[in-house]
Simulated assay, not measured.
Amino acid sequence: MRSGAASRLSVGRGLVCVTVAAVAWGTAGATAALAFGTSGLGPLALTFWRMAGGLVLLLAVRAVLPRRPARTRPCEPVRRRAGRVLVTGLGLTVFQAAYFGAVDGTGTAVGTVVTQGAAPVLVALAGRLLLGERLGTGGVVAVTGALAGLAVLMLGGAGSGTVRPMGVAMGLLSAAGYAVLTVYGRFLGREGRDRDAFSTTLTSFAVGTAALLPLAAAEGLWPRTDELPATLGLLAYLVVVPTALSYGLFFAGLTVVRGTTVTVITLLEPVTAAVVAVVLLGERLTATTVLGTAVLLAAVAVLAVTEARGTPAPATAPVGPAGSPDGAGAAQLPARPVR
């Protein structure tokens, strides 16, 4: 039985929580693009400030939340615990930093779509190769469709300048970081070594902040002073809304909404990112870019439906380190890349 707010959350409210989180995550790329312009910061420095600010907020939240009784677990050796924290922390760091690199390299709309579309496909493939999870005919079709959509994006958009290979490569690196994070989380779940999502997110932000500090310092840690108020406002929004608030809403919704349903709802993120990029940032999307985007996102939706039919999910899915449902057997689609 769940306690506290989670036990009082209806499925309808859970859906609202996940929807709001997805839309808020969709504004992260646009916020980063604006921050690049006002601050002069690079992707590594911007990610450092986001993770450092998120860490401070998460520590403040933990200080005021009532302590829940910990689940009884066997004692984990220090070396294995350190390895778990480092892998999840560095995986989240690569995912976050490379995503901002994709936004900087090829724009908000395309960078978000590539990351969001490639991540679940890479998770499905890695789960099949490393964990022996079943992919099935529907999964094969979905993976093939995702690759086709990515090819259309690359071949159709590169000539027009709307799609740049280096930015796409950063998006794929971001998706790979998330795949490592998620598949490792499933492995830990099978061994009974998984931890609650909040604690894992907290330690991951701590590892990311420490790992990014020297890299961000080399790139340029401090923003320009001529537009400092605007930069601070953008950083504050980035830390509070698409980070702390969205994580809280997402984890709350995930307690009562099927992981597969969450996956489909969070396709609102790349759609929101594309709309914001076109309307507010003036990014231009060609017909082939839109076609590739549609094929890629449709493939993710097909993969989600395939998983829903093949693997019945409980009303409350256990949450792994990436905020995704853990599962053995059929390759369950991750709830979403935690932006």
Rank of each mutant, 00 (worst) to 15 (best):
G12H: 13
A22W: 04
A24D: 08
L34C: 06
L34T: 05
T38R: 10
L44T: 04
L44Y: 03
T47D: 04
R50V: 04
G54S: 03
G54K: 02
L57H: 02
L57G: 04
L59I: 12
A60L: 14
R62H: 09
R67L: 10
R68S: 12
R68Q: 14
R73Q: 15
C75V: 15
E76T: 14
P77M: 08
V78Y: 11
V78H: 10
R79L: 14
L86I: 04
L90V: 12
V94H: 02
A98I: 03
D104M: 11
G105Y: 03
G107D: 06
V110H: 00
V113S: 05
A119T: 10
V121P: 00
A126S: 12
G127Y: 00
R128A: 15
G132I: 09
G139T: 00
V140R: 14
V140L: 14
V141Q: 07
L150N: 02
V152Y: 04
L153G: 01
M154G: 13
G159M: 02
S160F: 10
R164P: 00
P165I: 11
G167I: 01
V168C: 05
A169E: 07
M170W: 14
M170Y: 13
L172H: 04
G177I: 02
A179N: 02
A179C: 08
V180N: 01
R186G: 03
R186S: 08
R186C: 06
L188T: 02
R193W: 10
D196V: 07
S204E: 01
A206P: 01
V207Q: 03
L212W: 02
L213W: 10
L213M: 10
R224Y: 12
L245G: 05
Y247M: 11
L249G: 04
F250M: 09
G253E: 01
V257C: 00
G259P: 03
T261A: 11
T261M: 07
T263E: 06
V264T: 13
T266Q: 09
L268G: 03
P270A: 07
A274F: 06
V275Q: 05
V276R: 04
V276F: 11
A277Q: 03
V278H: 08
L281C: 09
G282Q: 10
R284M: 10
T289S: 15
V290K: 08
G292Q: 04
T293C: 13
L296G: 02
L296V: 13
A308Q: 14
T311I: 09
A313S: 15
A322K: 03
G323K: 00
A330H: 12
A331C: 15
P334Q: 11
R336N: 11
